[in-house]
Design a protein around this nucleic acid. Structure first.
Lengths: 231, 231
DNA sequence: GTCTATAGATTGATAGAC
DNA sequence: GTCTATCAATCTATAGAC
């Protein structure tokens, strides 16, 4: 009679999972915060694991479907103009929705903290579920980046995507995360600025031509070129 | 009478902490694998937490001291030549020793998996200890990078260092990690190649001039320049 | 130093009254 | 659907015999 209970559990769960992680959040913590009975989680969701799946279904699934569609639009548009898709646009589609998404029911909690936490969670349950939800988008990212950078070997692209995933995961985890306090290594900026920082960084790194097929086994020409005399 | 026990605990602990994480490794698992008694961890180390500190002291501390010294040498050498230090060299000093370090007592386990795990561990205990061990090196990295890139605002450098930390952490975590199986998103390469991949990527990203002081608020000029006609 | 035994706390899940 | 009470399985840490 109270379908509200289910929502309250979901809301409290994503807040606590974002703040402390999945394993470290007990069902007692969770139900206390939600103002519901301990047994109601198992009644409504079956288990703690299926509660986590429900959260991903509510928050991550629509986000990923939207990103997947935008990726396909980029590829289509580029194909019609006879061009390869632009790396910067691809990365922006992947990164932007995550940095913008907020959990609306409470101003302070960010979906990005939740997903960021999940992304670096060591718990096998979390890894398995997240991997399942990310797989289609992940596959499409690999394919689209390969199209955008035909000179770069697939192996290199795959590793560079891992680097971007790492950078994004850490960003989501440390950005305005109340659990971390205010470490001075992480200055506060608005989301738009942060997005630009990360997209610029990732684009430059991914486009690096040092491992283009024609240059294979020739390490990056960069090296010392960045040096300048001290004034 | 058996100082060997202490070593066996340390060896088994770093193997298991690397494979499953700190929290997920129970003292029962650990002492079973080490072939010692359950109570001996608390006898020799006082607590599970102090065992973790002992591992960092044995593995991470000498690594960081070596990196710190090399960083200072780079700054000194560059200063004598009237130049700024090269970003690529700074990053290489930071990244290389970690990707090369192996735990010698067993061929399959890598120190990098251990530190990589710790780096992305959500457990508050792990975070606190790791932060303490990394602080001096982290501070020196910030200062040296600021010297190398005087046109880039400190805020931007700090975030870019976070991006590099994320990329390195993820690399350490996924590289040849037996617990992950063989996901085809992570192709196997030898350590030297991986080092080149990551250093090139990070150098390009960190050197990106889009947020140099003179360009402030002017987003990266990159954009569509990377596009090419499809043949 | 090593061992057994167990304290003391916390966990996810469930049975059964209402 | 909600609640209380509890089970069964963990865990870290320790007391005390040898």
């Amino acid at each position: 009679m109270e379908p509200e209970t289910k929502q309250q559990i979901l809301d409290a769960a994503e807040t606590l999972f974002a703040r402390k992680g999945y394993k470290a959040t007990s069902l007692r913590d969770l139900t206390m915060n939600a103002g519901v009975n301990l047994a109601s989680v198992n009644y409504h969701f079956g288990s703690k694991k299926r509660l986590l799946e429900a959260i991903f279904e509510r928050r991550l699934q629509p986000l990923n479907e939207s990103r997947l569609q935008k990726l396909k639009e980029i590829r289509k548009a580029a194909g019609q103009q006879g061009e390869n898709p632009a790396v910067r646009e691809i990365l922006k589609v992947f990164i932007e929705p995550v940095l913008r998404a907020r959990v609306s029911h409470k101003g302070e909690i960010f979906l990005l903290n939740l997903v960021g936490r999940a992304f670096i969670d060591l718990d096998a349950t979390v890894q398995e579920i997240l991997r399942r939800f990310m797989k289609p988008l992940s596959d499409c990212m690999i394919e689209t980046l390969s199209k955008a950078l035909p000179e770069i070997p697939r192996e290199v692209i795959l590793w560079r995507l891992q680097f971007v995933l790492g950078a994004l995961g850490r960003t989501m985890f440390v950005y305005r995360n109340p659990a971390l306090g205010k470490p001075k290594e992480v200055p506060d900026v608005d989301p738009e600025t942060l997005l630009e920082y990360l997209v610029s960084f990732a684009t430059k790194g991914i486009e690096e031509p040092g491992y283009a097929k024609s240059f294979k086994n020739a390490p990056s020409p960069g090296g010392r070129k960045g040096r300048r005399k001290v004034k």
